[in-house]
Write a protein that binds this DNA or RNA. Structure first.
Lengths: 262, 262
DNA sequence: GTGAATCATGCACAATTACGCTAAAACGTG
DNA sequence: CACGTTTTAGCGTAATTGTGCATGATTCAC
């Protein structure tokens, strides 16, 4: 067998991953005649790019280990709730609000007060369920092919359903935030839907936990100039926040009164 | 069986939880060829993440502090699971199946085996969530205005989305069954959606718990001639079943000879 | 109560991993 | 071609992780 170039090797790993549903680092090293170190580096890179999920001994495809929204929901829940409380204050009664899929938005939906009247639109089943519990909320579900990873409907049907709507506020989730405040997503279709939702909305709010600042995902969604308000946690890096603020974006720090000033 | 990686094992445990409604530590240890200690650690972790509830000897699904539909779900849970097991046997692999909203159908979705490949269409967020956990199922969500009572999308948008589809099988819920096997629903729009779904499907299956036979709801959905298969419990009235059978409807009685979980 | 089963905790061992370092190869540039 | 820079791969070492076992403590069933 001829030696493989790095991208070729990673492609083969991806193939094996899809085929077998898992790969072992030791086995791959043997198969490609390279050290386990090299394989581990590959897997680490691929995991950072969202192509697989690193586990002890090898890697799994993105879907298998953590898909469950419930699982994502259970991590950092109190922090997400804190973000939610602040984000809710940005919602104008009787307005039309789009809830993008994501565990933070689920936390927001759950935390809505019972007397807040709202027309809520969402592509995420979990969020729709939470919204259905709120007596003053009319819930509109966006249909389409359900993306396991994103936890909501995406694709042509979803975009089509959105195209007939106008939102007063749009809550957009993000998988990562880059240095200039640019948002990115792991899924191609997911990113497309987010982008489209933004175009249908007069105001865009992004709520992000601090770890989002150290993640970069492959598909760009929006630059800082395209959203109006960013809700972050107290421990977010002030330098990076300042950069984003310069783009004309209002920054709200959760857990500190209601002030946005640094 | 090959050895499983830690996340894979925990995933399997989660599946067993959803499917069987409980797991025993000792049995899992045997099944996965690891020590009970390891299983106990898994269960402890999962419980800490809110994915299950730890009990003496094993674990139970979390389902205790959940939504109102979950509440309906907990009513007659065992019986619905029994219906579900039978109904699943009517599903042809690789077919396109519509899941109407309803707690019985949620039970069916949760009990689907992992290796059953399927295109599932549903208007119910809760069912969409359950389906998203099944690795071999493509889930299509029907959007529209969410009906709180029915627990799914209804109305013009939902009908429109359905109109472009053809189903191999259609699982229709019912609020009541009259003397001649006619189905009825409490919601006007809900009834309309059920009717329309039936017209899009080559085969229609109804799963009903026994109490449905003593309920009659205001809006007619379908007569016995319009569905092909009725799954009922063991204690359903044989006289009424005979009448429905005469309409050309196959009747399947669940629970005969299967006394599994306690 | 009493015995058996199940449990949490601490510890030990092996496998796996990240990190820093080095060397070789590939690349661009004048 | 010579040169510095970047990329890539291998190695040693220390740290981390998953697992099984021993030990009491706890819980359950009778």
């Amino acid at each position: 067998m001829t030696e493989l170039m790095l991208p070729e090797r990673q492609n083969r790993i991806r193939q094996r991953l899809a085929q077998d549903g898992r790969v072992l680092a030791a086995a791959l090293a043997l198969e490609f005649s390279v050290s386990e170190d090299t394989i581990r580096r590959d897997l680490r890179e691929m995991a950072a790019a969202g192509l697989c999920e690193r586990v002890y001994g090898g890697a799994l495809p993105v879907g298998l280990a953590n898909t469950s929204l419930r699982q994502r929901m259970s991590v950092a829940m109190e922090r997400k709730r804190a973000l939610a409380e602040v984000a809710i204050r940005q919602i104008v009664p009787r307005s039309v609000v789009f809830f993008d899929a994501g565990s933070t938005h689920l936390a927001i939906a759950e935390a809505l007060p019972d007397d807040l009247a709202l027309t809520a639109v969402t592509n995420a089943p979990a969020i729709a369920m939470a919204l259905a519990e709120k007596p003053a909320v009319d819930t509109i579900l966006i249909g389409g092919l359900v993306d396991r990873v994103a936890g909501g409907a995406v694709g042509a049907r979803a975009i089509e359903a959105l195209s007939g709507m106008r939102f007063d506020l749009c809550l957009i989730g993000t998988c990562g935030i880059d240095g200039e405040g640019g948002l990115s997503a792991f899924g191609y279709e997911d990113a497309a839907l987010k982008q489209f939702a933004i175009t249908r909305s007069s105001r865009v709010l992004v709520a992000a936990t601090t770890e989002k600042f150290s993640v970069s995902a492959p598909y760009a969604v929006a630059s800082a100039a395209q959203y109006h308000c960013l809700v972050v946690e107290e421990d977010a890096d002030p330098v990076r926040l300042q950069i984003i603020r310069k783009e004309g974006c209002e920054i709200i720090v959760a857990g500190r009164g209601a002030a946005s000033a640094a």
